[in-house]
């Protein structure tokens, strides 16, 4: 399988002088095409910083990130925006939908920004809406639909341009359990049926159990990594809980 993402000893520091915070210490890993990789860790472990660096929203302090062979840490400032819209798709915890546009227009915006011919846009939006089961809410505004529907709209917007990598930051963070389950099924089907590569940051074990591989971060570094392999999701979920328990600390850590 093709290696789509490769992180090579990346570090990220905040602050200056004697007041430096190391958000990411030294992280290296790679993601294969079509993988659904989960990143887990407690608050402050560096999950979101890592995602922001991969998504070119933030810059690394050291190291290199390669997306399909392109070193994104070397891309010039003026070309960053173009690279982002052509190669990446985003799903955020708070949906990041525009309240002034309808659901249909929110999805179409991703296409118009990518200069897709106007005549093809409506068709592609409808096709994607059909796949994500949001056809009946296309003409509604975000404030008129449920959280789950909003997030499915965000998914549609993220994948409609068929990006090389989809980055999901706590996608179920603002959803109830039923909506979360539906969304995770959607993400899984996007991964399996459309072959999309997804990197999902979450601190929820249940959400992470949908991934094929999970990286656990602690204090800005990879603590461990587990793979689902041929295990059922239930067994994989238990493994995740075990790792989280281990990461949470043992009796020796209590003073």
């Amino acid at each position: 399988m093709k290696e789509i993402l490769k992180l090579n000893h990346i570090q990220k520091y905040y602050g200056n002088g004697g007041n430096v915070t190391k958000a990411i210490q030294d992280i290296s890993f790679s993601v294969q095409e079509g993988e659904l990789v989960g990143i887990m860790g407690a608050s402050g472990s560096g999950k979101t910083t890592l995602l922001n660096c991969i998504s070119t929203i933030d810059m690394v302090s050291a190291g290199h990130i390669y997306l399909d062979g392109t070193d994104i840490t070397e891309i010039k400032e003026k070309q960053i925006a173009r690279f982002r819209r052509e190669n990446l798709g985003f799903i955020f915890q708070d949906f990041n939908l525009l309240d002034t546009l309808t659901i249909s227009e929110n999805i179409a915006l991703a296409l118009t920004i990518n200069k897709v011919p106007a005549g093809k846009i409506d068709g592609r939006v409808r096709e994607m809406a059909g796949k994500l089961n949001i056809m009946d809410i296309l003409d509604k505004y975000p404030y008129q639909v449920s959280g789950g529907q909003k997030q499915r709209c965000a998914c549609a917007r993220a994948i409609i341009n068929q990006p090389k990598l989809i980055l999901a930051d706590e996608p179920t963070g603002a959803l109830d359990s039923h909506s979360s389950q539906m969304l995770l099924s959607t993400i899984q089907s996007i991964n399996e049926e459309l072959g999309a590569t997804i990197l999902m940051v979450t601190h929820d074990a249940f959400s992470a159990s949908y991934a094929s591989r999970i990286l656990f971060l602690r204090d800005g570094a990879i603590f461990t990594e587990i793979r689902k392999g041929s295990d059922s999701r239930k067994i994989f979920f238990e493994k995740i809980l075990d790792v989280l328990t281990m990461m949470g600390g043992g009796l020796s850590d209590v003073r």
Binding site: A81, N96, L109, I113, N114
Partner: peptide, 12 residues
């Protein structure tokens, strides 16, 4: 709203 556009890859 403009930060959403930036995240989607709209140039400055």
């Amino acid at each position: 709203r403009f930060s959403v556009l930036r995240k989607m890859g709209v140039e400055e």
